[in-house]
Amino acid sequence: MNIFRFAGDMTHLISILVLLLKVYATKSCSGISLKTQELYGIVFLARYLDLFTDFISVYNTVMKLVFIGSSLAIVWCMRFHRVVKRSYDRDVDTFRHYFLVGGCFLLALFVHEKFSFREVFWAFSIYLEAVAILPQLILLQRSGNVDNLTGQYVLFLGAYRGFYILNWIYRYFTEDQFSRWISCVSGLVQTALYADFFYYYFISWKNNAKLKLPA
């Protein structure tokens, strides 16, 4: 564990707490893409297949349970919670995210570290996480103004993988046989997808204005 990875995990945890706060406190999921939440649920379920077989550390196991539990809880809320589901606008959340699932799975079948059930699903989860934010970013562009909690949620979610990139650089130089090229390339693509959001978020913060993404 190094400071970059720990900062990344904490930033990821904060993004989830901000999202849970928004949905729980406002009893509303306006501005949140259900499709992105479903993709994240698939990402964690596909990545943490080793949850009960490989024990790395208490921290690792607890964080995996938190990530799986929170993503499934958000999806459940947005689909079935009496009050929250009324604020879900499916007319704006129209990204065809099943293409992302199919495409990433196909890619994982060809590009992986080892052709085994676990490794293919792990590579699939890495590729899918890189593009999982697309429905959410498209929804924010469509819905124009972004409420503060949603903006902070996306900001922290984008920042966490940026910390992981620093972690991979650090591990590359400090550990001899360290090679995480699948995670690195995907992580760079993932963080790059947030570039314009970070830019508009910074502009709105500098001008102390409401965050608006150009359509």
Partner: peptide, 10 residues
């Protein structure tokens, strides 16, 4: 084939 590294990252 060499065993892939243990997945110690989240």
């Amino acid at each position: 084939t060499k065993e892939p590294l243990a997945k110690d990252e989240l």
